[in-house]
Amino acid sequence: MKVTIAYIEEPPFGWTSPDGTATGADLDLADAVLRAIGVTRIEHCLTTFSELLAGVEAGRWDMNVPLFVTPDRAAKVAFSLPVWAIGDGFLVRAGNPKALDSYASVAQRSDARLGIIAGQVQHDAATLAGVPAGQILVFEQQADAIEAVRSGEIDAYASTALGNRILAERIGSAVESIDHKTGSEGQQRPPVGAFSFNRNNSELIHAVDGQLRLYLGSTGHRARMARFGLTAKEIDPVLECRSV
């Protein structure tokens, strides 16, 4: 049995290593789950974020790496059980010159420019917080948004708080990560992410969900995710949701 999973360049969740292989927390989790349900061949397809949902919906691949679950997305694809819960954050230049720590803080400064990847939930979050369209720059690739922060074209790049912390560690002293304040933008608990599939692929969906129920929160799962910086902070909220 072969399964093709699409991913994007977004450490620590997924990226292409120097030797050309795909790696990352989400791909490692997918590998463990798919092998456990009897998949013998796993192929990886690098794509852009804006193509993830369209690609799996059209059957160009079998599943996507986890992305945030929203009603609009759930109308197009089928989601697995949630696998992580992560709040938003900013990547900014060192020292955070404009003191940006939430979408509201961007909206309050007309001279602040915010970078977002096309199609990601951060765009809606920023708009709902009152950030004018003229202050938002949309990028197709994360690498372009990062370079825009470093060059000063934008003042902050919005993504997951965890992802930005990893990026800041890799890039070095030129940038820093800023976690959004707890409870900012009206979020009482971090949003969840899940694998997504073509809605007609019920056999794979059910098999993946069955294994996720067994595996999520286990010692092996936590150890695998810790290698990529995911901790109980990102894992436990989805386990708590299942127990309610």
Rank of each mutant, 00 (worst) to 15 (best):
Q142V: 03
A6T: 00
G89N: 08
P190I: 06
A145S: 15
G134E: 14
A232W: 07
S173G: 12
A126R: 00
G89F: 02
K2C: 00
Q142W: 04
E9G: 09
V65E: 13
P190L: 11
G152I: 01
K181D: 05
V106A: 06
L67C: 05
A125T: 12
A194D: 01
Y157E: 04
F68E: 14
I146S: 06
Q108P: 00
E43P: 06
G163D: 05
A94W: 04
D101Y: 13
H206R: 08
N96T: 00
A6S: 13
A78P: 00
Q142G: 08
V175N: 01
N164W: 07
V92S: 09
V244N: 15
M63H: 03
E169M: 14
Q135H: 06
A207Q: 15
R213T: 13
L91W: 00
G14K: 06
G119E: 01
T182Y: 06
P82L: 10
D101A: 09
A156V: 01
I166S: 13
R189M: 08
S159P: 01
F13R: 14
I136Y: 15
E203I: 14
H44K: 09
R35E: 07
L67F: 10
A118W: 06
V69Y: 14
T70G: 07
L216V: 12
L128A: 13
V208R: 07
G24L: 13
A118G: 10
G20H: 14
R109I: 03
L27E: 07
V138N: 02
A129N: 11
L162H: 09
S80G: 01
G217V: 14
A85N: 05
H206F: 05
R35M: 04
G193K: 04
L81A: 08
S202Y: 07
A36Y: 08
S110F: 09
K181S: 05
P82F: 08
P237L: 05
L29V: 10
R41K: 14
H123P: 00
L212A: 08
S102E: 03
D209W: 04
P66A: 00
L216N: 07
A143P: 09
G95R: 01
I154C: 10
T47G: 07
V138G: 02
L67G: 00
S173N: 14
I37T: 03
Q188D: 13
D236M: 01
L100S: 02
A22R: 02
